[in-house]
Design a protein around this nucleic acid. Sequence first.
DNA 1: TTGCGTGCAAAGGTTTTGCATGGCA
DNA 2: TGCCATGCAAAACCTTTGCACGCAA
Lengths: 136, 136
Amino acid sequence: MEQKNYKTKTKDLINEFILKHHDVTFTAAEISEYLKKCDSTVNVTTVYRNIDRLVEKGILIKRKSDNEDAAQFQVVSEDSDCEHHIHLQCSECGKLLHMECDFMDEMQEHLMKDHGFFLDCRQSVLKGLCENCRKK
Amino acid sequence: MEQKNYKTKTKDLINEFILKHHDVTFTAAEISEYLKKCDSTVNVTTVYRNIDRLVEKGILIKRKSDNEDAAQFQVVSEDSDCEHHIHLQCSECGKLLHMECDFMDEMQEHLMKDHGFFLDCRQSVLKGLCENCRKK
DNA sequence: TTGCGTGCAAAGGTTTTGCATGGCA
DNA sequence: TGCCATGCAAAACCTTTGCACGCAA
Protein backbone atom coordinates (compact mmCIF):
# COMPACT_ATOMS: atom_id res chain seq x y z
CA MET A 1 0.00 0.00 0.00
CA GLU A 2 2.99 2.29 -0.49
CA GLN A 3 2.15 5.70 -1.81
CA LYS A 4 3.81 6.81 -4.98
CA ASN A 5 6.54 9.32 -4.52
CA TYR A 6 6.88 11.94 -7.20
CA LYS A 7 10.17 13.69 -7.75
CA THR A 8 9.97 17.47 -7.57
CA LYS A 9 12.35 20.37 -7.47
CA THR A 10 11.28 21.25 -3.95
CA LYS A 11 12.00 17.79 -2.64
CA ASP A 12 15.44 17.88 -4.19
CA LEU A 13 16.24 21.21 -2.58
CA ILE A 14 15.01 20.07 0.81
CA ASN A 15 17.17 16.96 0.58
CA GLU A 16 20.06 19.21 -0.32
CA PHE A 17 19.39 21.29 2.78
CA ILE A 18 19.21 18.20 4.94
CA LEU A 19 22.55 16.93 3.70
CA LYS A 20 24.13 20.23 4.67
CA HIS A 21 22.57 20.19 8.15
CA HIS A 22 23.14 16.72 9.44
CA ASP A 23 24.85 17.84 12.62
CA VAL A 24 22.44 20.48 13.90
CA THR A 25 18.72 20.85 14.37
CA PHE A 26 16.69 23.23 12.26
CA THR A 27 13.19 24.64 11.85
CA ALA A 28 10.66 24.72 9.04
CA ALA A 29 11.35 28.44 8.69
CA GLU A 30 15.04 27.78 8.14
CA ILE A 31 14.24 25.40 5.32
CA SER A 32 11.98 28.06 3.84
CA GLU A 33 14.78 30.61 3.94
CA TYR A 34 17.14 28.20 2.27
CA LEU A 35 14.65 27.59 -0.52
CA LYS A 36 14.25 31.31 -1.04
CA LYS A 37 18.00 31.65 -1.39
CA CYS A 38 17.81 29.02 -4.08
CA ASP A 39 15.35 31.21 -5.98
CA SER A 40 12.52 28.88 -5.15
CA THR A 41 9.16 30.40 -4.28
CA VAL A 42 7.83 27.52 -2.26
CA ASN A 43 4.98 28.11 0.10
CA VAL A 44 5.43 27.39 3.80
CA THR A 45 2.61 24.89 3.64
CA THR A 46 4.58 22.84 1.17
CA VAL A 47 7.61 22.90 3.41
CA TYR A 48 5.57 21.58 6.31
CA ARG A 49 4.03 18.88 4.18
CA ASN A 50 7.41 17.73 2.96
CA ILE A 51 8.79 17.73 6.47
CA ASP A 52 5.84 15.67 7.64
CA ARG A 53 6.58 13.05 5.02
CA LEU A 54 10.22 12.90 6.06
CA VAL A 55 9.25 12.50 9.69
CA GLU A 56 6.86 9.69 8.78
CA LYS A 57 9.59 7.99 6.81
CA GLY A 58 11.85 8.22 9.83
CA ILE A 59 14.37 10.44 8.08
CA LEU A 60 13.73 13.35 10.41
CA ILE A 61 12.96 13.51 14.10
CA LYS A 62 10.68 16.26 15.34
CA ARG A 63 11.31 17.95 18.66
CA LYS A 64 10.23 21.05 20.48
CA SER A 65 12.67 23.02 22.51
CA ASP A 66 11.73 24.86 25.64
CA ASN A 67 12.33 28.44 24.75
CA GLU A 68 11.43 28.47 21.10
CA ASP A 69 8.00 28.18 19.62
CA ALA A 70 9.01 26.51 16.41
CA ALA A 71 9.60 22.77 16.24
CA GLN A 72 13.14 21.59 15.69
CA PHE A 73 14.04 18.83 13.28
CA GLN A 74 17.01 16.52 13.29
CA VAL A 75 18.32 14.29 10.56
CA VAL A 76 18.55 10.65 11.44
CA SER A 77 21.56 9.42 9.56
CA GLU A 78 21.21 5.78 8.68
CA ASP A 79 24.79 4.85 9.31
CA SER A 80 24.95 6.32 12.79
CA ASP A 81 22.01 4.37 14.17
CA CYS A 82 20.38 7.34 15.87
CA GLU A 83 17.54 5.31 17.31
CA HIS A 84 19.82 3.51 19.72
CA HIS A 85 21.62 6.32 21.41
CA ILE A 86 20.63 9.65 22.81
CA HIS A 87 21.87 12.99 21.60
CA LEU A 88 23.68 15.79 23.32
CA GLN A 89 22.82 19.24 22.08
CA CYS A 90 24.70 22.42 22.79
CA SER A 91 22.26 25.13 23.77
CA GLU A 92 24.67 27.76 22.49
CA CYS A 93 25.51 26.66 18.98
CA GLY A 94 22.90 23.96 18.47
CA LYS A 95 25.43 21.33 17.54
CA LEU A 96 24.42 17.72 18.05
CA LEU A 97 26.65 15.03 19.46
CA HIS A 98 25.81 11.35 19.24
CA MET A 99 26.33 9.49 22.45
CA GLU A 100 27.61 6.35 20.84
CA CYS A 101 29.65 4.58 23.45
CA ASP A 102 29.52 1.78 25.97
CA PHE A 103 28.23 4.16 28.58
CA MET A 104 24.99 4.36 26.63
CA ASP A 105 24.25 0.73 27.45
CA GLU A 106 25.19 1.21 31.08
CA MET A 107 22.84 4.12 31.24
CA GLN A 108 19.88 2.30 29.78
CA GLU A 109 20.53 -0.58 32.12
CA HIS A 110 20.72 1.70 35.12
CA LEU A 111 17.51 3.49 34.19
CA MET A 112 15.68 0.22 33.85
CA LYS A 113 17.09 -1.45 36.92
CA ASP A 114 17.11 1.38 39.42
CA HIS A 115 14.25 3.51 38.13
CA GLY A 116 12.09 1.06 36.22
CA PHE A 117 12.35 3.44 33.30
CA PHE A 118 12.49 2.38 29.67
CA LEU A 119 14.41 5.01 27.76
CA ASP A 120 13.15 6.25 24.39
CA CYS A 121 16.18 7.53 22.52
CA ARG A 122 14.21 9.16 19.73
CA GLN A 123 12.61 11.60 22.09
CA SER A 124 15.46 12.21 24.49
CA VAL A 125 18.01 14.96 24.29
CA LEU A 126 20.45 16.17 26.89
CA LYS A 127 21.14 19.87 26.77
CA GLY A 128 24.30 21.62 27.83
CA LEU A 129 27.45 23.19 26.46
CA CYS A 130 29.82 21.65 23.95
CA GLU A 131 33.57 21.95 24.30
CA ASN A 132 33.93 24.94 22.03
CA CYS A 133 31.16 26.99 23.56
CA ARG A 134 32.31 26.19 27.08
CA LYS A 135 35.70 27.73 26.42
CA LYS A 136 34.18 31.05 25.54
CA MET B 1 15.90 46.27 43.15
CA GLU B 2 13.52 43.51 44.18
CA GLN B 3 10.04 43.98 42.90
CA LYS B 4 7.23 44.07 45.39
CA ASN B 5 5.04 41.04 45.38
CA TYR B 6 1.39 41.59 46.13
CA LYS B 7 -0.69 38.80 47.52
CA THR B 8 -3.80 38.02 45.49
CA LYS B 9 -6.45 35.38 45.39
CA THR B 10 -5.25 34.17 42.02
CA LYS B 11 -1.71 33.67 43.23
CA ASP B 12 -2.95 31.69 46.19
CA LEU B 13 -5.00 29.42 43.99
CA ILE B 14 -2.14 28.86 41.60
CA ASN B 15 0.14 27.96 44.46
CA GLU B 16 -2.50 25.57 45.67
CA PHE B 17 -2.59 23.98 42.23
CA ILE B 18 1.17 23.69 42.16
CA LEU B 19 1.28 21.94 45.51
CA LYS B 20 -1.16 19.37 44.23
CA HIS B 21 0.83 18.78 41.06
CA HIS B 22 4.40 18.49 42.18
CA ASP B 23 5.00 15.14 40.50
CA VAL B 24 3.64 15.78 37.03
CA THR B 25 3.92 18.43 34.39
CA PHE B 26 0.98 20.63 33.48
CA THR B 27 -0.08 23.32 31.03
CA ALA B 28 -1.35 26.86 31.39
CA ALA B 29 -4.76 25.63 30.25
CA GLU B 30 -4.86 23.11 33.09
CA ILE B 31 -4.24 25.83 35.61
CA SER B 32 -7.02 27.83 34.03
CA GLU B 33 -9.44 24.93 34.35
CA TYR B 34 -8.50 24.48 37.97
CA LEU B 35 -9.18 28.13 38.67
CA LYS B 36 -12.56 27.86 37.02
CA LYS B 37 -13.42 24.95 39.25
CA CYS B 38 -12.57 27.15 42.18
CA ASP B 39 -15.15 29.65 40.97
CA SER B 40 -12.47 32.03 39.89
CA THR B 41 -12.93 33.92 36.64
CA VAL B 42 -9.31 34.58 35.90
CA ASN B 43 -8.29 35.48 32.42
CA VAL B 44 -5.80 33.30 30.56
CA THR B 45 -3.47 36.24 30.23
CA THR B 46 -3.21 36.46 33.97
CA VAL B 47 -2.42 32.79 34.22
CA TYR B 48 0.41 33.19 31.74
CA ARG B 49 1.76 36.21 33.56
CA ASN B 50 1.75 34.39 36.86
CA ILE B 51 3.44 31.38 35.34
CA ASP B 52 6.10 33.64 33.84
CA ARG B 53 6.86 35.06 37.25
CA LEU B 54 7.16 31.61 38.74
CA VAL B 55 9.49 30.53 35.97
CA GLU B 56 11.63 33.61 36.54
CA LYS B 57 11.79 32.87 40.24
CA GLY B 58 12.94 29.35 39.44
CA ILE B 59 9.90 27.75 40.98
CA LEU B 60 8.72 26.33 37.70
CA ILE B 61 10.58 24.93 34.71
CA LYS B 62 9.12 25.39 31.25
CA ARG B 63 9.30 22.62 28.70
CA LYS B 64 7.77 21.79 25.38
CA SER B 65 6.98 18.28 24.34
CA ASP B 66 7.00 16.99 20.81
CA ASN B 67 3.42 16.20 20.06
CA GLU B 68 1.63 18.86 22.01
CA ASP B 69 1.41 22.52 21.19
CA ALA B 70 1.10 23.80 24.71
CA ALA B 71 4.14 24.26 26.93
CA GLN B 72 4.49 22.00 29.94
CA PHE B 73 5.49 23.26 33.35
CA GLN B 74 7.17 21.41 36.16
CA VAL B 75 7.57 22.32 39.79
CA VAL B 76 11.10 22.55 41.07
CA SER B 77 10.80 21.48 44.66
CA GLU B 78 13.43 23.11 46.79
CA ASP B 79 14.08 20.11 48.97
CA SER B 80 14.72 17.75 46.09
CA ASP B 81 17.41 19.92 44.55
CA CYS B 82 16.12 19.66 41.01
CA GLU B 83 18.93 21.69 39.53
CA HIS B 84 21.46 18.99 40.16
CA HIS B 85 19.87 15.99 38.60
CA ILE B 86 18.02 15.33 35.40
CA HIS B 87 14.44 14.15 35.14
CA LEU B 88 12.86 11.15 33.56
CA GLN B 89 9.45 11.73 32.11
CA CYS B 90 6.99 9.09 31.05
CA SER B 91 5.60 9.98 27.65
CA GLU B 92 2.44 8.06 28.42
CA CYS B 93 1.28 9.41 31.77
CA GLY B 94 3.51 12.43 32.15
CA LYS B 95 4.89 11.33 35.48
CA LEU B 96 8.24 12.75 36.48
CA LEU B 97 11.03 10.82 38.12
CA HIS B 98 14.01 12.51 39.71
CA MET B 99 17.28 10.86 38.87
CA GLU B 100 18.80 11.38 42.26
CA CYS B 101 21.48 8.76 42.61
CA ASP B 102 25.20 8.22 42.34
CA PHE B 103 24.84 7.37 38.70
CA MET B 104 24.01 11.00 38.08
CA ASP B 105 27.55 12.01 39.01
CA GLU B 106 29.04 9.25 36.92
CA MET B 107 27.02 10.42 34.01
CA GLN B 108 28.07 14.04 34.27
CA GLU B 109 31.65 12.95 34.58
CA HIS B 110 31.41 10.71 31.57
CA LEU B 111 29.81 13.41 29.46
CA MET B 112 32.54 15.85 30.36
CA LYS B 113 35.45 13.50 30.00
CA ASP B 114 34.49 11.52 26.92
CA HIS B 115 32.35 14.04 25.07
CA GLY B 116 33.58 17.37 26.38
CA PHE B 117 29.97 18.13 27.19
CA PHE B 118 28.83 20.14 30.19
CA LEU B 119 25.37 18.95 31.13
CA ASP B 120 22.65 21.44 32.01
CA CYS B 121 20.17 19.61 34.22
CA ARG B 122 17.53 22.32 34.09
CA GLN B 123 17.06 21.87 30.38
CA SER B 124 17.50 18.14 30.10
CA VAL B 125 14.83 15.50 30.21
CA LEU B 126 14.95 11.88 29.26
CA LYS B 127 11.75 10.53 27.77
CA GLY B 128 10.50 6.99 27.96
CA LEU B 129 8.07 4.74 29.76
CA CYS B 130 7.66 4.41 33.50
CA GLU B 131 7.18 1.07 35.17
CA ASN B 132 3.40 1.24 35.29
CA CYS B 133 2.90 2.28 31.70
CA ARG B 134 5.40 -0.27 30.46
CA LYS B 135 3.35 -3.10 31.93
CA LYS B 136 0.31 -2.16 29.93
C1' DT C 1 -5.02 10.30 -17.60
C1' DT C 2 -4.24 9.45 -12.73
C1' DG C 3 -3.46 11.09 -8.50
C1' DC C 4 0.38 13.15 -5.93
C1' DG C 5 2.31 17.85 -5.10
C1' DT C 6 1.62 22.66 -4.53
C1' DG C 7 -0.32 27.47 -3.79
C1' DC C 8 -3.43 30.28 -1.57
C1' DA C 9 -6.49 31.69 1.82
C1' DA C 10 -8.36 30.85 5.98
C1' DA C 11 -8.56 28.94 10.42
C1' DG C 12 -6.85 26.80 14.75
C1' DG C 13 -4.24 26.90 18.96
C1' DT C 14 -0.96 28.90 22.13
C1' DT C 15 1.18 32.86 23.85
C1' DT C 16 2.24 37.89 23.98
C1' DT C 17 1.31 42.85 24.07
C1' DG C 18 -0.96 47.41 24.97
C1' DC C 19 -3.90 49.96 27.45
C1' DA C 20 -7.16 50.96 30.85
C1' DT C 21 -8.89 49.54 35.19
C1' DG C 22 -8.81 47.18 39.69
C1' DG C 23 -6.91 46.28 44.08
C1' DC C 24 -3.06 45.37 47.61
C1' DA C 25 -0.10 47.72 50.94
C1' DT D 1 -1.59 57.22 47.09
C1' DG D 2 1.74 54.35 44.51
C1' DC D 3 2.43 50.59 42.03
C1' DC D 4 1.63 45.89 41.04
C1' DA D 5 -2.03 42.73 39.19
C1' DT D 6 -5.72 41.91 36.15
C1' DG D 7 -9.21 42.00 32.19
C1' DC D 8 -10.05 42.63 27.57
C1' DA D 9 -9.16 42.96 22.84
C1' DA D 10 -6.04 42.47 19.45
C1' DA D 11 -2.03 40.71 17.51
C1' DA D 12 1.90 37.57 16.80
C1' DC D 13 3.50 33.10 15.73
C1' DC D 14 3.60 28.49 14.28
C1' DT D 15 1.08 24.98 12.10
C1' DT D 16 -2.88 22.72 9.85
C1' DT D 17 -6.78 22.28 6.64
C1' DG D 18 -9.72 22.68 2.39
C1' DC D 19 -10.04 23.32 -2.19
C1' DA D 20 -8.56 24.12 -6.76
C1' DC D 21 -4.96 23.77 -9.88
C1' DG D 22 -0.37 22.08 -11.58
C1' DC D 23 2.58 18.60 -12.85
C1' DA D 24 5.22 13.97 -12.67
C1' DA D 25 4.76 9.39 -14.39
